[in-house]
Each structure stands twice: as structure tokens, then as C-alpha cells.
């Protein structure tokens, strides 16, 4: 289990949000399967060399969002209840956050909505060529 997550403490993004994003990403990709056990707060804090309260906060938020379940004394597990719905929501969350950052940066370059749309469609055509529906 160790070292499947990575965080960048120097980033301006709060560490607990980075941990949440990492867990969601692994759930979305299936590298964390429904019912699979997550590291304990202490183990993950030591593994990433970050504050235990930061990890605990991330786990609390993930539990609130239904991504993980914690049972006292046993630990935290990827939710198995409605797990495919959770995995889909996790995929949506991660995709949202990636596109949000990309569009924000492109907007910062000074492009207007029409220019961003044109750029986006050009990239869509590259990655999803017409005739190859997927």
C-alpha cells in the first residue's frame, strides 16, 4: 500500500486537498478497489512525511463525501456501497479539477471564450478523432 500517494508540500494547494484528490484519483482509476483498506492516518502521515491531522482531515472529508468508510478499530476502506456511483463521481471530480485548472490557465493567457472553445475543439479532435467514437 505504501507510496501509492504523492503530495507536493511546496505547492500552494493545501495538503489535505492534495490527499483527497489522490485518493479520488486512485478510486476513479480502480487502483483502489471497493472494500480495499486505506493506510491508517499514522501510516500515511509517516509515509508522506506530513502532519497526521492533515491526513485525518482529508479522511474525514472523504468519508463525508461517501468515498471511504471508517469503522472504529478496523480502519478506513474504499466505500463498497454504491461503489460504481462513487467511482463515477470520483472520476467526475478529478476531471472537473483538471479541466478547471487548464481553463483557468488558458484564460490567464488572455484568451476569450471563443478562442478557448476553438483551442479546446482542436484538442478534442486530436484525442477523439471523428469516426472513432469513444
Amino acid at each position: 500500500m505504501s507510496a501509492i500517494f504523492t503530495v507536493d508540500p511546496r505547492s500552494g494547494v493545501p495538503l489535505y486537498l492534495q490527499v483527497i484528490e489522490q485518493v479520488k484519483r486512485h478510486v476513479a482509476l480502480g487502483s483502489l478497489a471497493p472494500g480495499e483498506q486505506l493506510p491508517t492516518v499514522k501510516a500515511l502521515a509517516l509515509d508522506l512525511t506530513i502532519n497526521p491531522n492533515t491526513v485525518a482531515r482529508a479522511y474525514r472529508d472523504l468519508e463525508r463525501d461517501g468515498v471511504i468508510e471508517t469503522s472504529p478499530g478496523r480502519g478506513s476502506f474504499v466505500s463498497s456501497n454504491g461503489s460504481s456511483a462513487n467511482a463515477h463521481r470520483a472520476i467526475d471530480d478529478v476531471a472537473d479539477s483538471i479541466l478547471n485548472n487548464a481553463i483557468r490557465e488558458v484564460k490567464n493567457l488572455g484568451l476569450d471564450r471563443a478562442q478557448v472553445t476553438a483551442t479546446f475543439e482542436r484538442q478534442l479532435d486530436r484525442w477523439f478523432p471523428i469516426g472513432e467514437q469513444k
Binding site: 508540500p9 499514522k42 502521515a45 502532519n51 491531522n53
Partner: peptide, 28 residues
């Protein structure tokens, strides 16, 4: 790691460092 392990076991820590990256990692 010792500081983090201690806090995970419930200890309370105050520490100083000129290396801000250490504080950025370990401190809440």
C-alpha cells in the same frame, strides 16, 4: 518522522526551523 510519529500517537509538538519546507510538511 520522529515528530510526526509522536504527534500521531497524541503528542504535542512546538518546533522551530529555518527550513520552511520542514514546517510546511510536519506542522499543522
Amino acid at each position: 518522522d520522529l515528530i510526526i510519529e509522536a504527534a500521531a500517537n497524541g503528542a504535542t509538538v512546538v518546533f522551530s526551523s529555518h527550513q520552511i519546507g520542514q514546517v510546511e510538511r510536519a506542522a499543522d
